[in-house]
């Protein structure tokens, strides 16, 4: 059992120089059972779920942003979040995790700019509803607010750390560019089997 599973909120840098860092950008997810791995991400209005199985010692993180819900039905936009969560959970289950043991921390969903639609809150609402619906174990985290966040997550230990960033931080002004995005909802025709 992992009694040490906890979320830390830090105002300092606190980066561990010995850890093998894997940075997750929007649309990506990563799962690991390597105790030296620390998963990191930078969040504005996006949300990251950090999920951990304390018995199997496996965990992972995703990073997703729902498309702006103004252009279609809610369920149409939920697909991207559901898919991102499913990929992460299935990745943990494939490594030996069990659904009924999954602890979840949620981060992100900030409203960085007052004049824009509060998509961050919608992302946060979705993530919280997903955890409830799937009966996963909520462990806390930090959602909404007005500041960007740098997140570190140790997937084997089940330990998360958050650093709040100012709007002038270079990491906020120039976030890492995604190398891949979630597959298009129209991507189903790229393999001819039928």
């Amino acid at each position: 059992m992992n009694g040490a599973a906890r979320a830390l909120v830090s105002t300092g840098d606190g980066l561990d120089p010995c850890a093998r860092r894997i940075h997750i950008v929007q649309g990506e997810y990563e799962v690991s059972r390597d105790p030296n791995v620390v998963l990191t991400t930078l969040l504005g209005s996006c949300v990251a779920a950090c999920i951990h199985d304390p018995v199997a010692g496996i965990g992972g993180m995703n990073h997703f942003l729902l498309p702006d819900a103004d252009g279609g039905s809610d369920s149409e936009h939920m697909r991207y979040g559901v898919n991102s969560m499913e990929l992460l959970i299935n990745g943990i289950l494939k490594l030996g995790g069990r659904r009924d043991r999954l602890h979840v921390w949620l981060f992100g969903g900030a409203r960085l700019f007052d004049r824009l639609t509060d998509i961050g809150s919608k992302n946060a609402d979705f993530a919280e509803a997903f955890i409830r619906r799937e009966e996963l174990i909520p462990m806390g985290g930090s959602l909404r607010g007005s500041k960007a966040r740098r997140i570190q997550f140790w997937p084997v230990a089940g330990r998360a750390r958050q650093l709040l960033l100012s709007k002038a931080d270079p990491a906020v002004l120039n976030p890492p560019v995604p190398t891949q995005v979630l597959p298009s909802a129209e991507a189903g025709s790229d393999v001819e089997l039928f």
């Binding site: 149409e76 898919n83 597959p183 909802a185 129209e186 991507a187 189903g188 039928f194």
Partner: peptide, 16 residues
């Protein structure tokens, strides 16, 4: 008989 890639659209599911 067929397959659907996630995330899918309603139109994509109907097509399959």
């Amino acid at each position: 008989n067929n397959y659907v890639v996630k995330p899918f659209t309603v139109a994509g599911l109907k097509e399959r």
